[in-house]
Computed example of a mutant assay.
Amino acid sequence: MRKPDLANAIAQETDLSQDKASEVITAFTDQVSAAAARGDDVSLIGFGTFTVRQREARSGRNPQTGATIQIPASRTVGFKPGKALKEAVK
């Protein structure tokens, strides 16, 4: 499902216009991104939690040349599904 499909589904369930539903989705993703940039977790009970994870520096291998390379430390965002989402997927 892409963003326009999601906006259409939300619009049908909430009596919002599709444009307004798209704005809501954009506002949601902007706020999750801003929280992640600050290092904050975002928890949606029953749905899941977005967490910022720290990756340590490590060595890797260039698949084309086989040469060893250093991969720098980085931050990434992870998602852990909540109980209700896990149950819905079963």
Rank of each mutant, 00 (worst) to 15 (best):
M1G: 05
R2N: 15
R2V: 07
R2D: 15
K3S: 00
P4A: 11
P4E: 15
D5H: 01
D5A: 05
L6R: 02
A7N: 05
A7Q: 10
A7M: 09
A7H: 05
I10V: 14
I10H: 03
A11L: 03
E13K: 10
E13M: 02
T14Q: 08
T14F: 02
D15V: 00
D15Q: 08
D15R: 03
S17I: 04
S17T: 15
Q18I: 09
Q18H: 04
Q18A: 06
Q18W: 00
D19E: 13
D19Q: 06
K20P: 05
K20R: 13
A21T: 03
A21G: 04
A21K: 01
S22Y: 09
E23V: 01
E23W: 00
E23L: 04
E23H: 01
V24Y: 03
I25H: 01
I25E: 06
I25R: 04
A27R: 11
A27E: 13
F28Q: 01
F28I: 13
T29S: 07
T29C: 05
T29N: 07
D30S: 09
Q31D: 10
V32K: 09
V32D: 10
S33M: 04
S33K: 12
A34C: 02
A34R: 04
A35E: 09
A36E: 09
A36C: 10
R38I: 03
R38S: 13
R38H: 11
G39R: 03
D40E: 15
D41G: 02
D41S: 13
V42I: 12
V42E: 11
S43N: 15
S43W: 01
S43T: 15
L44G: 02
I45Q: 14
I45E: 14
I45G: 10
G46E: 07
F47P: 08
F47N: 06
G48E: 11
G48P: 06
G48F: 03
G48H: 08
T49A: 06
T49Q: 12
T49R: 13
F50Q: 07
F50N: 06
V52D: 11
R53M: 13
R53N: 12
R55P: 03
E56A: 15
E56T: 14
S59I: 06
S59M: 08
G60C: 11
G60T: 08
R61Q: 11
N62T: 09
N62A: 08
P63M: 13
Q64V: 00
T65P: 01
G66P: 07
A67S: 13
A67E: 15
T68A: 14
I69N: 02
I69Y: 03
I69T: 12
Q70P: 10
I71P: 12
P72I: 12
A73V: 06
S74W: 01
R75V: 04
R75P: 09
T76R: 11
V77L: 06
V77R: 06
V77G: 07
G78N: 12
G78F: 09
F79C: 10
F79P: 14
K80Y: 11
K80W: 12
P81Q: 10
G82L: 08
G82S: 13
G82W: 07
G82M: 09
G82N: 11
A84S: 11
L85S: 09
L85E: 10
L85I: 08
L85Y: 08
K86Q: 14
E87W: 01
A88W: 04
A88D: 07
A88G: 07
A88Q: 07
V89K: 03
V89T: 11
K90A: 15
K90I: 05
